[in-house]
Design a protein around this nucleic acid. Structure first.
Length: 717
DNA sequence: AAAAAAC
């Protein structure tokens, strides 16, 4: 454990002003040596020092209050292979019961030797049970890791993975999903690839354009939209589709017969209310109980006007079709020359359907709900028109444009569920904003806030970030959202999940009254009703016709296995040339799997919330750059993350929700390329898996599998 | 139950 020696280089406690015991001198006087007694030799760390430093270093969530602020990573952190190796070593110990707290990046963890950290009594040394130490990693056998959890360590989470069965219990509860999850969601990635490769430049991302058409090809899907919907309308002028606001322009065009109700009837699927979704019909058949928890309105919201309810229940979108966009340019949509050029540099020469559909309404200042499957260009769909709209508002206000006024408050905000996604969005939006002289900045946690605050003080126009840090800075008085007139919620349905909804609501309440709201997601559904009710006015709802699984380039396979074979099977599947993304349900299991793969000679890195931000970023970039071909992640990587050429997604643990399945699967099969999704399940989970697939409208073969089976080799190819 | 998201 290299960290030990290196820690010694970090300076004496007193010198760092971290010691409370010294109390003899000002922390500011670094060189001041009042008490010579201890000066003879290098000052030693006291438990308090270490504890304080540990907290500061990790920025762990548990020890709030102290050590906040610095949190910069030590520069002695191992790199590359060594880092991975070191990481695994520490991880092994952690599993043996010694780990201080969950931060996986052991690099920063001050050694956890028992000495330093008094608290975790478990110091492995004493721990009897550590027996595991010997076989920590084989993790697969959940059996072994018994009691240690018991102790205090919450994280030992590992267990859960292994002990699948327990979960089981809940599995049976299929119903809930039904309700919540509406549509087939194609979603997941809305954002074109551009993203993740931070390294490379954002722009190209747009390459999506190149694969835009595919999506469109949905022509095949005759069903819904086409018929009922006026789609062709492309002339936004008349645009029938946005219709959503029935109030305003409902009747017109649509009037045709179908419109009001038709949604429900004709185009079942896209409807946001899953309840009505026809296809899954099976499900509901069986479970009539659909909770309808998502129907805020009718039941528990008296304040709601019937009209609003109608909107939410339908959440029926106007589906635009590929043919509607033919010949349409970004300029036709109302975007200015600079922005059009910036888009071209990003690789977006012509608008994708979702972009063409939402841009006019965004520019018109309307609230918009947009649904488009992975890679359909959602980021540009809200990013480009948002920038154009900001310029227009600025011009209308009569203020001088183009000048960066020191300390001016941001006028636009984009919220994302994960830091990686926020970074990815910024890579696309920043060049567009800069093309017209606007500035963006990222505001997310896990990194020192200094730079972020500095950027805000210099003045930015668009803030892109995650809820936690944004709310934190608002409370600190360092971020003023009162002038935010355009707010975007990416992965909006997810932002309405428990844990996210309230912070998001509080943040939205800080923005300007009456500000424009744009909600996007591949799986946008009624789950957003609460936000729609409180913050949106007569939203226009858009989606792209033909985006169904049948038109997908992803092959789905379910392997029915013995739980004990899970590790071996994953090894065989991941032992391949192409990029492979493995999803695990918990952070611990993800870490364990990466460890196991590495031990098996298959270079692998992990991505989950127990890693510090720099490691998260580094591990993801290792997959992006191709330095490693296997990434084992939790659902932190399920939505939005774009990595080119992932051709195999392995779900080590089946997801509970069909939406999660769709988002995870959407990491592959991008840009029209072929992709394969393999889900491992124990026999008793077949029925539940079937229901989930039905909801997702995915067809997949169930194949009994044991380690060494030929089809594993085929899948790995 | 888990994961994500602030210090």
């Amino acid at each position: 454990m290299p960290p030990y020696k290196k820690n010694d280089r970090r300076g004496a406690p007193a010198a760092r002003g971290a010691s409370a015991s010294a109390g003899s001198r000002s922390p500011k006087h670094r060189g001041y040596r009042a008490e010579e007694p201890a000066a003879g030799k290098k000052a030693r760390w006291t438990d308090e020092d270490r504890a304080a430093r540990g907290r500061a270093t990790y920025g762990s969530r548990d020890e709030s209050g102290s050590g906040r602020g610095r949190g910069e990573r030590p520069n002695w952190e191992p790199r590359g292979k060594d880092a991975r190796r070191t990481e695994r070593e520490w991880e092994r110990r952690d599993r043996a019961g010694e780990r201080p707290r969950r931060e996986y990046d052991r690099d920063e963890r001050p050694r956890r030797d028992g000495d330093d950290r008094p608290r975790r009594s478990f110091d492995r040394d004493e721990r009897p049970r550590r027996e595991f130490d010997d076989r920590p990693r084989r993790s697969f056998d959940r059996d072994e890791r018994p009691r240690r959890d018991a102790d205090d360590r919450p994280r030992r989470s590992f267990d859960r993975d292994d002990r699948p069965r327990r979960q089981f219990d809940r599995d049976d509860r299929p119903r809930r999903d039904s309700d919540d999850r509406p549509r087939r969601s194609f979603d997941r990635d809305d954002r074109p690839r551009r993203s993740f490769d931070r390294d490379e430049r954002p722009r190209r991302s747009f390459d999506q354009d190149e694969r835009p058409r595919r999506q469109f090809d949905r022509d095949d899907r005759p069903r819904r939209d086409s018929d009922d919907r006026p789609r062709r309308s492309f002339d936004r002028d008349e645009r029938p589709r946005r219709s959503f606001d029935q109030d305003d322009r409902p009747r017109r065009q649509f009037d045709r017969d179908d419109r009001p109700r038709r949604d429900a009837d004709d185009r079942p699927r896209r409807s946001f209310d899953r309840d009505e979704r026809p296809r899954r019909s099976f499900d509901q058949g069986e479970r009539p109980r659909r909770d309808s928890s998502f129907y805020p309105s009718r039941d528990e919201k008296p304040a709601f006007t019937p009209t609003d309810d109608v909107v939410l229940e339908r959440l029926e979108a106007e589906a635009i079709e590929a043919a509607d966009v033919e010949g349409v340019t970004f300029g036709d949509l109302g975007l200015g020359g600079n922005i059009v050029r910036a888009l071209a540099e990003l690789g977006a020469e012509t608008p994708f359907p979702i972009q063409a559909a939402t841009a006019p309404d965004v520019l018109a200042g309307k609230d918009v709900l947009g649904r488009g499957r992975t890679g359909s260009g959602k980021t540009i769909a809200f990013g480009a028109p948002m920038v154009e709209r900001l310029m227009q508002l600025w011009a209308e206000s009569g203020k001088a444009g183009g000048k960066r006024q020191l300390g001016r408050a941001p006028r636009a905000l984009i919220l994302a569920p994960t830091r990686e996604l926020a970074l990815q969005i910024d890579r696309t939006v920043q060049p567009i904003a800069r093309s017209v002289g606007l500035f963006t900045t990222q505001i997310y946690g896990g990194v020192p806030q200094g730079r972020q605050v500095g950027a805000l003080q210099r003045g930015v126009d668009i803030v892109i970030g995650t809820p936690g840090r944004i709310e934190d800075l608002v409370e600190q008085g360092r971020l003023d959202l009162s002038e935010v007139v355009i707010t975007v919620l990416d992965e909006a349905d997810h932002m309405c999940d428990l844990g996210f909804l309230e912070p998001v609501q509080r943040i939205l309440r800080h923005t300007a009254d009456g500000g424009q709201k744009l909600l996007f997601s591949a799986t946008l559904d009624k789950g957003v009703a609460q936000l729609v009710d409180e913050f949106l006015v007569d939203p226009a709802v858009h989606e792209v016709a033909g985006e169904d699984q049948a038109s997908s380039t992803i092959d789905h396979r379910v392997l029915v296995i013995e739980h004990r074979d899970k590790g071996a099977i994953i090894e065989q599947l991941a032992d391949r040339e192409g990029k492979t993304l493995v999803f695990a349900r918990t952070r611990a299991f993800a870490e364990m799997l990466a460890d196991q793969l590495e031990d098996a000679g298959i270079p692998a890195v992990s991505l989950h919330g127990d890693l510090n931000q720099s490691r998260r970023t580094r591990n993801l970039s290792q997959l992006t750059s191709g330095r490693v071909n296997v990434l084992v992640a939790t659902d932190v990587a399920a939505r939005g993350i774009h990595v080119d050429d992932i051709d195999l997604v392995i779900q080590a643990d089946a997801p509970d929700e069909y939406k999660t399945y769709l988002h995870r699967a959407g990491r592959t099969g991008r840009a029209g390329k072929q992709g394969t999704v393999v889900t491992l399940i124990p026999r008793h989970r077949q029925r539940r898996m079937n229901e989930l697939l039905e909801r997702a409208e995915i067809e997949a073969d169930f194949v009994p599998t044991a380690p060494g089976d030929d089809h594993l080799l085929t899948l790995a190819q």
